[in-house]
């Protein structure tokens, strides 16, 4: 599975990364070699193996529904660049809600 320069530009845009032409070229090559490694696995015959959802042989890890103290609001808000009415204040949102 080959990755194109356009794919890299698209993924970079989704991740809000601004890449130069030179970076686009370089990452296309690097990502292609990573995907080539994944392709090695795809080439194996794994038809008798169940898909693995997680590398750990674990499932059903739960927490009881009991409240635990969180963080103090003042401490958290003190770390925010801007605060108003005990809320995080963020710049004007340009995109629409997802």
């Amino acid at each position: 599975m080959a990755i194109s320069r356009d794919d890299v530009a698209y993924v970079a845009a989704l991740a809000r990364l601004e890449l130069s032409e030179e970076e686009l070229e370089r990452y296309t090559v690097q990502l292609a070699s990573i995907l080539a490694h994944a392709a090695d696995i795809a080439a194996l015959d794994l038809s008798d193996l169940a898909p693995m959802a997680h590398p750990l042989p674990l499932k059903n890890v739960f927490r009881d529904d009991e409240p635990r103290p969180g963080l103090e609001r003042d401490v958290v808000l003190a770390a925010a660049p801007a605060v108003e009415d005990h809320r995080f204040c963020v710049p004007r949102i340009l995109g629409e809600e997802p």
């Binding site: 009415d85 995080f88 204040c89 949102i93």
Partner: peptide, 9 residues
């Protein structure tokens, strides 16, 4: 959202 000045969360 489109016409606001800023938002609080």
């Amino acid at each position: 959202v489109g016409s606001s000045e800023y938002s609080l969360v």
